[in-house]
Amino acid sequence: MSTGEPATPEPGQSPSQGGGYQPPSGTGYPPPAGGYPPPGAEGGGYAAPNYSAPGTEGYTAPNYPPPAGQPFAGGGQQPYQGGYPTGATGQAPLSPTEERTWAMAAHLSSVLGIWVFFLGALGPLVVLLAPGQRSPYVRAQAIEALNFNISVLIYSIIAWILVFVLIGFLMVAALFVFWLLFTIIATVKVSNGEPYRYPLTIRLVH
Rank of each mutant, 00 (worst) to 15 (best):
A103T: 09
M104D: 07
A105D: 03
A105F: 04
A106P: 05
A106C: 02
H107C: 10
S109L: 06
S109Q: 01
V111K: 03
L112K: 14
L112D: 11
G113M: 02
V116I: 15
V116E: 10
V116K: 00
V116M: 09
F117Q: 12
F117S: 05
F117Y: 08
F117T: 10
F118I: 11
F118S: 03
L119K: 01
L119Y: 12
L119W: 11
G120W: 02
G123L: 04
G123I: 00
P124R: 01
P124L: 02
L125H: 07
L125S: 02
V126F: 08
V126I: 15
V127G: 05
V127L: 10
V127N: 04
V127D: 03
L128I: 08
A130W: 13
A130N: 12
P131I: 00
P131D: 12
P131V: 01
P131L: 01
G132R: 02
R134N: 02
R134E: 07
S135G: 05
P136D: 13
P136H: 09
P136S: 14
P136K: 05
Y137Q: 14
V138N: 10
V138C: 03
R139N: 07
R139Q: 09
A140H: 09
Q141W: 04
A142I: 07
I143G: 10
I143D: 04
I143F: 03
E144S: 08
E144H: 03
E144W: 02
A145M: 09
L146M: 12
N147E: 05
N147W: 02
N147I: 01
F148Y: 10
N149Q: 12
N149D: 14
I150N: 01
I150M: 06
I150V: 15
I150F: 03
S151Y: 08
V152P: 02
V152I: 14
L153H: 02
I157L: 08
I158A: 14
A159V: 15
W160Q: 14
W160M: 15
W160G: 14
I161K: 14
I161H: 11
I161V: 09
I161L: 13
I161S: 08
I161D: 12
I161R: 15
V163M: 12
V163G: 11
F164C: 07
V165R: 12
I167K: 07
I167S: 05
G168H: 00
L170R: 12
M171F: 10
A173D: 11
A173I: 07
A174R: 13
A174Y: 13
L175T: 01
L175M: 05
L175A: 05
F176Y: 11
F176I: 07
F176C: 03
V177F: 09
F178T: 15
W179K: 13
W179E: 14
W179H: 13
L180H: 03
L180V: 07
L181Q: 12
F182T: 06
F182H: 04
F182C: 08
F182L: 06
T183P: 00
T183F: 04
I184L: 12
I184V: 15
I184Y: 13
